[in-house]
Amino acid sequence: MKLSIIKFLVVLGILFFLAPLVLTSLSAGWRWPMLWPAEISWRSWEYLFSGQSQTGIAVFNSLLIACGVTIVNLGLAIPAAYGLIRFPLKGKLIVQIILFAPLVIPPFVSLMGIHFTFIRLGLTESLPGLILAHLTPTLPYMIWALLSSYRTVGPEWEEQARMLGANGLQRMIHVVIPFLLPGILAGSSLSILVSLSQYLITFLIGGGQVITLPILLFPFISGGDPALGAAYALLFIGMAFLALFILDCLLKWSYRRVN
């Protein structure tokens, strides 16, 4: 009973913040001091769904990159966090500082160098290049989330499995990973969300040739077309929710299979 009231309030709160976006996306000339838009216009949604607006390919690219980024992140962060927790390492602090540096240092600092290097490597204007470039702002979140999950797995669990004859891979899959699931979920969610919202990295490394949703969205927001900005923002929110929902289902399903 109590839980459903909280749920209800949360949904109400979300709708409260979404309502102005919906109204703005449908309005034509909504200015202070009018309480409601004077006229309803479908202009922004018509444009958004028109064949020329590249909305479909943008959503597809955004999701594809976010998925790719998250998979690579998992591949890098699971061993990295494991190493940081389990092995005595000289200068561990320095390694941690380097791994978490992108959280503190503005991405623009490294972006120019990455862009330069990627041009030499022929990685610009391609999906693999973008996935690699999106690792910079997302990997620290993944490592951070996994580090805290690893702290919940005592080495005793692994020792026991080892004594029962499980090899390294089996211990990883059957013993360690189930403990990590909450961290994987948190890290993947952050990695997806941060990747979805990248503008400058995508524009520079993608060279404008890979269209993602922020590439379409940003000009409308800063260019003063609130109706189209709002319509694209709603689409963005929908896309992010969908991605997180699928991720959640996927992880729950795999958790059940492992056990």
């Binding site: 120019m112 862009h115 400058l200 404008g208 590439i215």
Partner: peptide, 22 residues
């Protein structure tokens, strides 16, 4: 057509491409 938020970004892109010899 490639949508751009700020033409400065394109100029920056070209500056780097020039430096990298693309």
């Amino acid at each position: 057509r490639v949508p751009v938020n700020d033409t400065k970004d394109v100029i920056n892109q070209l500056l780097t491409e020039k430096k990298a010899g693309k």
